[in-house]
């Protein structure tokens, strides 16, 4: 039997079953190995896993990529074999990361339920909020899955795309998600407008030269949006002779030329810092939790 790729096997083949069993046993073995190992060994296992997984992505960046690759194509030399293997491994590694993340989401939900159940049970301060949270969570899960079941596993499912055919679960889910949750999210977002005002008031108070420059710049940008002021400015004799001094031009020049160059400088620093951090993590040079 010829294998097109390590990650692809024929349906019903022995290799497929062997790999499936290995895929089940190996992570369990690693899990129990980590659980019972001493901290030093645990760190070594985690470091090795980190390095191997990271290596796939590093090779994906620097190894020549297969060009114009066809399905079931045979690699012709070592370089191609590695290229094919790496290209096929990246989606698998991403899938594994997604599966682990899904398990962790369960832990997150467990944390929320645990904290708020305890609050409820012991009648801690503000326990009604916890009641609302747990109640909302349960309702959303019940109606979400109920509606999902109706849509996907019943004969009436396809017709539920049309609100005219909705039944109680569809209405309930729509009310909870679109009617309540989305509106509350929009309300939280709109609060930002008021917060911007209060933050701007504090920031623009003239306390220093920097604050004064900030105030002047902000003022120019605000005035630009006021048509009356823009027009009066444009009609000024000096501005008529120098179009570059129009409020519109200045307001564009500030963010496009003056600000973007500074932000790019900051972005370079952030990018290089991120790369350094990732490199330290990949090579297990970062002693997380003890480092700082």
């Amino acid at each position: 039997m010829i294998l097109a790729s390590f990650w692809v096997n024929q349906s019903g083949s022995i290799w497929l079953f062997v790999k499936l069993i290995l895929a089940f046993i190996v992570p369990l073995a690693i899990f129990y190995g980590i659980k019972d190992a001493s901290p030093g060994v645990r760190r070594a296992i985690i470091g090795a896993t980190f390095f191997l997984t990271g290596l796939v992505y590093v090779l994906y960046l620097i190894w020549p990529k297969p060009i114009h690759r066809q399905p079931n194509e045979i690699p012709q030399n070592f370089s191609e074999s590695v290229g094919f293997f790496v290209s096929d491994t990246v989606p698998v590694a991403a899938d594994v990361a997604n599966i682990v993340a899904t398990f962790l989401l369960g832990l997150g939900v467990f944390s929320v339920i645990k904290i708020h159940s305890e609050k409820l049970a012991r009648r801690h301060r503000d326990w009604p909020f916890s009641l609302v949270l747990i109640g909302s969570m349960l309702l959303m899960v019940i109606f979400g899955y109920w509606n999902y079941y109706l849509k996907n596993y019943t004969p009436a499912g396809p017709s539920l795309g049309n609100p005219a055919n909705w039944t109680f679960p569809s209405f309930a889910e729509d009310f909870l998600f679109n009617g309540l949750y989305q509106q509350m999210e929009a309300a939280m977002f709109s609060l930002i407008a008021f917060f911007i005002l209060s933050a701007a008031y504090r920031a623009f108070r003239i306390r220093s030269i920097e604050a004064t420059v900030l105030l002047g710049t902000a003022l120019l940008l605000v005035l630009r949006t006021m048509t009356v002021v823009s027009q009066l400015w444009a009609d000024a004799p000096f501005v008529r002779d120098h179009p570059n001094m129009q409020l519109e031009s200045i307001a564009k020049w500030l963010p496009n030329t003056f600000q973007s160059s500074s932000i790019r400088g900051v972005d370079f620093g952030v990018g290089i810092g991120l790369l350094a951090m990732a490199l330290r993590l990949w090579l297990s040079l970062e002693k997380q939790g003890q480092g700082a």
Binding site: V270, G273, A276, L279, R280, E286, A292
Partner: peptide, 26 residues
Amino acid sequence: LIGDEFYAASAYLTRQPVLTGSLVGQ
């Protein structure tokens, strides 16, 4: 902390050789 000062923080706080070396590399 602006920009890469964020990444310099652990080196600044602990002065671990690996972190300060990385900072100089940056």
